[in-house]
Design a protein around this nucleic acid. Structure first.
Lengths: 136, 136
DNA sequence: CAGTATCCGAGCCGATACTG
DNA sequence: CAGTATCGGCTCGGATACTG
């Protein structure tokens, strides 16, 4: 989901939007992951640094332990999510958004708003297109 | 890239963000595609209904004929892109954004802005995380 | 010119089982 | 409780070749 390092680090930094490693492309690769945006949303709605692993899994209906773990690791490595361990047995781990992660909520909210307002139009266009091509 | 029809159409319409078929999830599946957001951007920058296939391919550095075709077909079926054919031999096909497609530029611009402003921080966080875990 | 058809490798993601 | 390890399916997307 999250490549460790771009092959040519300078390219992404140059700001060339047509470079395959442009910032936008790389961001979309992250938030395009099946559980990433949902994790950010859930963490953004909770009090900072307060949600534990199991609680997170409960709030993200359908996510497996493995995928939640993978998703959180990627977000931590990217500096979007913080992780605090308490005790050793049984372990308690608290997750929360960093300031950077919280700032990601702005574009994500824009995406959500557009989806809620316009996905129905896409469905209609799709059904129209399908009925036209279907009867051949 | 674009499933023909959701398995349970009502679920997506209900607005339940935790449903796997929620609008946001489905939108992210689309714009997460490797070439989708770039196609929208290039078409948004051009005059409406004026860009031909080859020109589009030229402006989207690196895209193959196949993937450009697949991407445009999906966008057309979703009602985000319009397609106008002129003549038969040789064929001339003009593409452009619909109003719906143009409106998608708003959230996409937000994503781009965040990426340009903050991806460098992610890179730094990643390098830090990598150097810490690496030497073990 | 503007596509379509086919093959194929890479990686996402799910299911399941195991551990400190 | 909070993970890791492993296997396997499926889809995305690239390379190449062909067509009206």
């Amino acid at each position: 989901m999250t490549p460790r390092t771009p092959r040519t680090p300078e390219a992404g930094a140059r700001g060339d939007l047509f470079d395959p490693l442009c910032p936008t492309r790389r961001l979309l690769d992250r938030i395009g992951g099946k559980w990433t945006s949902m994790a950010v949303k859930v963490l953004a709605e909770a009090s900072p640094d307060e949600v534990r692993f199991a609680e997170l899994q409960r709030r993200m209906a359908g996510v497996s332990q493995k995928m939640l773990s993978v998703t959180l690791q990627a977000l931590c490595r990217d500096g979007l999510v913080s992780r605090r361990v308490e005790g050793t047995v049984p372990p308690r781990v608290y997750y929360g958004l960093t300031d950077l992660g919280l700032s990601l909520e702005v574009p994500l909210a824009a995406v959500r708003r557009w989806a809620e307002e316009h996905m129905a139009e896409i469905d209609r266009a799709q059904q129209l297109a399908d009925t036209v091509t279907e009867d051949m």
